[in-house]
Amino acid sequence: MIEWFTWVQFAVAVLAGLVAIGLGLAGRVPSDLTIGALALVELLLVAQLVIAIAAPAFGNVPTGSPLEFYTYLVGALLLPPAAAFWALLERNRWATVILGVAALAVGVMVYRMLQIWTVQQA
């Protein structure tokens, strides 16, 4: 895991989440901006997956449980597509809020992944 990349990813997910929730509550339907933000969140997760698979070969190993790490990562990967799919089924303001909820959840999960990789106590 590359720490600065993970922090960037965390910031993007939280920002995308807050923007989408804000726009949704303001009555906007899902737009290129909010769907695109979710696509970016997903793209960064895929990059994170590639990094996580490659990192141990370069001596960068998780301090915590790899199983737990990958459970979070796979779970996070599922969220943006699920939220986007549901958002497009019925395009209204709440669909935009849901995009935001998914992005925020990804942010929390990325933060947990960082903890598991770097500072696992147990």
Binding site: T71, G75, L78, A83, W94, A105
Partner: peptide, 20 residues
């Protein structure tokens, strides 16, 4: 729908943790 979405996320989190 938002309520359901949050439920879905919590269900996912609970499944993930339980699986691990």
């Amino acid at each position: 729908r938002v309520l359901v979405a949050v439920y879905g996320v919590l269900a996912l989190a609970a499944i993930g943790r339980s699986f691990v």
